[in-house]
Nucleic acid binder design. Structure first.
Lengths: 167, 167
DNA sequence: TCTTGTATGTTATAGCATAACATGTCAACC
DNA sequence: GGTTGACATGTTATGCTATAACATACAAGA
């Protein structure tokens, strides 16, 4: 469970790291953020976040649901969608539209507008800071008089590891 | 059909314009682009593009399918998806993931990496040039060693017209 | 205690997408 | 002309994604 230096993880956000630490840390920050805001990180919601944190992959709602059901929570789609929607609303998870999937936010609480890099080979998803991207979008929006509320910025391609083996 | 200055159109890419001209022009360029490449803009494909061009909205595959069926084409989902996939592959249409929908490309043939501004009130979709956005993404990708193949950049918010009435 | 708001659970259904296979069409080649 | 092969279209069937609508439970405050 808290196996350090696990290497079976397909994601690792493209870089080897102690994933147990990484996930635990994010979870702790998520709890703090929720408490600050008076948002209730209930058992299902917390468990859903843990599940997402187990890998740096994006997971489908039904995949999360299956795991939740194993843990004794309801096994109908709304159970998963509600928990995931909560996490997304609170900025504790992100929705990856290209994959119809969800991924834990790696920087809960920090104001950030993330961009996602999705490896089409190993399915790892990296969340990169994209302030420059957001700035460019804001300025494009300004020129057409559009007011932006939410953004999805996703790139599909090859992560460093898969790019090498393919080449 | 070629009614100039039609105003019922919800999109108009956020700006009043002669939509018949705009759509006709795009269609003509799409034909030229296809011919250049040896891509076959067959009747279904061409008709699908025309349907998308009728408004600056994104349309769901099933909505397009319905229209195609009215014109005597097949009425099963793959008919629409194949035509739409062709258009997307050829850069004649774009897929708006946030809406699970498709929109005609307003700049066929031109190398461009579009960003989409989606009005949550009137559902109009504007395709804005986003070279700066792409540049920012490329540089973010470079720092993590990721090689980008495709991108989806979408913003949800209010278009100028809807922003005013809401305010 | 009662009320109110929020969270969870369940049923049912709607909406989006594709696999797999059959048929048709057209051009290149013998 | 007939054959072959590549591509396009049509159809059946199914799988995946998401939400509406309603029922139940539970905690916090009046």
């Amino acid at each position: 469970m808290t196996d350090p230096r696990r290497s079976s993880d397909p994601g690792l956000a493209f870089e080897a790291h102690d994933h147990a630490d990484c996930a635990g840390d994010v979870l702790r920050r998520a709890e703090a953020v929720s408490a600050d805001r008076g948002a209730r990180l209930t058992p299902v919601r917390r468990r859903a976040l843990e599940i997402l944190l187990e890998s740096h992959r994006a997971m489908g709602a039904y995949e999360v649901l299956e795991r939740l059901a194993e843990d004794g929570f309801g096994n109908q789609p709304p159970v998963a969608y509600r928990a995931l929607d909560f996490l997304v609303d609170q900025g504790l998870a992100h929705r990856i539209r290209r994959l119809n999937a969800f991924a834990a936010c790696m920087h809960p609480g920090e104001a950030h507008s993330p961009a996602f890099f999705i490896c089409r080979s190993c399915s790892a998803v990296a969340e990169a800071p994209a302030e420059a991207v957001r700035a460019a979008m804001d300025s494009a929006a300004a020129t057409i008089g559009f007011s932006v509320e939410r953004m999805n910025i996703e790139a599909l391609g090859l992560c460093p590891a898969c790019g090498e083996t393919a080449a």
